[in-house]
Design a protein around this nucleic acid. Structure first.
Lengths: 248, 248
DNA sequence: CGAGGAATTGACTAAGATCAAACTGTGTGG
DNA sequence: CCACACAGTTTGATCTTAGTCAATTCCTCG
């Protein structure tokens, strides 16, 4: 038997022993199904901060799951206006918008050095036919993305600057907590401008609003380091205007 | 042979002879597959103007395709702010957001007397495993919805009132044209308030902006009756700021 | 260590929201 | 069939919020 000795870099990462399994593919697969899945998912790819994972218009072949690091996805118009459509952290999926036209509909950019798993879509589709629960999981993932987008629409269409920022911070906090990080003490991976782009605000407004929250001692803001001193106050602010908290 | 004589009301509508087939399920099915599909899709349900097709929070069982008529979907926050997330016309699908949580994530309301086909989701899912092109079609549909939502985010996050309204009218026009209706002369099925809710504007702003377009003789506005006199001007207005025209 | 990008803060502006009043079809009930 | 009520719309006046422009400070990264 000539088993290849895997070098550290090409070490096959498998879903079966991935710590993100619960977040990424929470679907009851038996041992054999899991092996099939592992056979399809490509070893992880590393990206440096600022690197593009894919660009709008590029041919679509795969979905990508964040293993480590942090991404933004954004669409931009011809005249260069950019809309950040989401920020993705470990266990979250990118590229679902590419299926419809067989080409990516947005840019995905690493906001810090990151690592992703590649999920070749054709093979995942085929596998889904053999593993109903996997197929169902993909439908759910796509649906969840649609629900999230609807929350963003509600935010952009109806909420004031303070409400938007509070909702954003609370959502980040909650997602970090779900990954075992501190909920009330974290580092922003994105700039004020990127936050603004996501929230439909200008960077100055983001900055001012953060300062305002700090003055009210709801937050301690030290550049990218955020401490939520009174998360209840932020929650009270968005209590009325959010339906669920599915922003991302 | 005891063939049931179908009454007018329970007349089984079949996909195989539906005039919307190209819009709704543009997927190369053979005769037998089409028969399987017809067996799963429920006869159409009629709704009067103002009636709810489903409500946010209700159990999710089916997707719905508009056969005739016009719908809006909207999410609302606890304190009653409403965000219209889209307007649906014949051949378009509603309910995709319900898959993720097994309950509907928005309200769907008929804006005129309408008729829908019900697509029981579990059965469609099962059928998808037998008919790969059908499965693929559903992934594409969901992805298209995500792409559309991203355009709406770009609109809500970056565009001015005039640009939003122009993009909205052009999108409507294009979709009507795709259904064989006049592109430049149509009736709005929704109120100014509903347009505003969709576009993140107040009804007064929608009204003023329509008046402005009329003053420039880009439009003739007679209540709900819109005539586009100079669509090129509207196109020029949104040329820079839209990526594609996938609003809905 | 220096340069340049990111963030903060202030002053001013403008777009759209809000409030208010008047007008117009539409539809309903007498 | 007409009159009235009402919802939807238009338009004006004013106000508020967030955007724009600008100056300064402060990291961060090469």
């Amino acid at each position: 038997m000539t088993e290849q000795t895997p070098s550290l870099h090409t070490l096959k990462v498998s879903c079966s022993n991935c710590s993100l399994r619960e977040l990424c593919l929470p679907v009851g697969l038996n041992r054999e199904e899991m092996a099939q899945l592992d056979a399809v998912i490509r070893q992880s790819r590393r990206l440096k901060r600022g690197e593009y994972l894919f660009r709008s218009g590029e041919g679509f072949r795969s979905l990508y799951a964040v293993r480590t690091g942090f991404f933004k996805t954004c669409v931009s118009s011809q005249d260069g206006r950019e809309q950040v459509t989401g920020f993705q952290m470990s266990g979250e999926l990118m590229g679902l918008d590419g299926i419809s036209a067989s080409q990516h509909g947005c840019d995905a950019i690493a906001l810090e050095d990151s690592e992703v798993c590649e999920l070749p879509f054709n093979r995942m589709e085929t596998l889904g036919r053999d593993i109903p629960s996997l197929q169902h999981h993909f439908f759910r993932l796509m649906s969840r993305e649609i629900v999230r987008d609807q929350s963003v629409m509600l935010l952009l269409g109806n909420m004031k600057a303070e409400e938007r920022l509070a909702a954003f911070l609370l959502n980040l906090s909650q997602r970090l907590a779900a990954r075992g990080f501190a909920a009330n003490d974290f580092i922003l991976r994105m700039s004020r401008e990127e936050i603004g782009s996501f929230l439909g605000l200008k960077l100055e407004t983001v900055s001012r609003t953060l300062s305002k929250f700090q003055q009210q001692s709801w937050l301690k803001v030290d550049h990218k380091h955020i401490q939520m001193l009174q998360p209840e106050e932020l929650k009270a602010l968005v209590a009325g205007c959010s339906q669920a908290n599915s922003l991302r």
